[in-house]
Design a protein around this nucleic acid. Sequence first.
DNA 1: AAATGAACCTGTTTGC
DNA 2: TGCAAACAGGTTCATT
Length: 273
Amino acid sequence: MPELPEVEVVRRGLLPLLVDQRVHSVTLMRDKLRFPLPGSMVQELPGLIFSSVSRRSKYLLFCFDRGPVLIWHLGMTGQFHVLDQSTPPGAHEHVRINMENGAALCYRDARRFGYAGLSTPEALTGHKWFAQLGPEPLGGSFSADYLIGRCKGRRVPIKVLLMNAHVVVGVGNIYASEALFRSGIHPGRAAGNISKARITVLVKAVRSVLSEAIDAGGSTISDFVQAGGKPGYFSHQFRVYGREGEPCYQCGRSIRRMVQSGRSTFYCLGCQH
DNA sequence: AAATGAACCTGTTTGC
DNA sequence: TGCAAACAGGTTCATT
């Protein structure tokens, strides 16, 4: 579920349902997901009032009127639902945060690759999950000059570099392929062997594909959260991802798939060099 | 230093 | 039909 656009859409969907609501109780159905869950949230969160839900990279940040910040990563299959507290626990539900208004924030995650932690507002930027992260792709510091600098001298394939969160956050397996198609750059090309002009195009492509995805997914995921339980999904508009063997919309050649660093990459030999 | 691959889990799809 | 293999939107850790 969670690419940067989808995490952002989840954030926007949760925001109005949580802000100003007071936590009543927290239930943990298991000790750990990918990592041990912060058990102290059971004692620390009740009584606090949600003040905002923000995002850094693919992490959701639940902030309160005081006290800790709850950090949450959805992994591959994590989902948040806001449901009535009378709703019985769904399959693969692991955590429930009950609010005094009768609603509950429920976390489900079939593969349990998600993880959560507690921090403080002051310690957040230095937290080990955030300290090494690159810039936000939709922010001003992800510039052509920046990416040119990060590509220089690197022999790593550009697609693998794009997915490195130390370089830039939020570009997952889908959008790396899609941005490279939009840029006309072959995903296997060495990062250091791409002209400055083409890197400049790539920066714009990353921005455009992510912001278009946010726009396209917004209403769908918002409904999914508010409806409480219905599986939501993006109406996909992929040009290469998942289209192996199908004709390129641009040149008609067959879309190819290859594996880079264990992940599927989709591309068009006619359009990407 | 840099790049690759395995590991963490379960569910779904594909292929014999 | 049945079963096994391959594959899945992410990140970290160990190994070349």
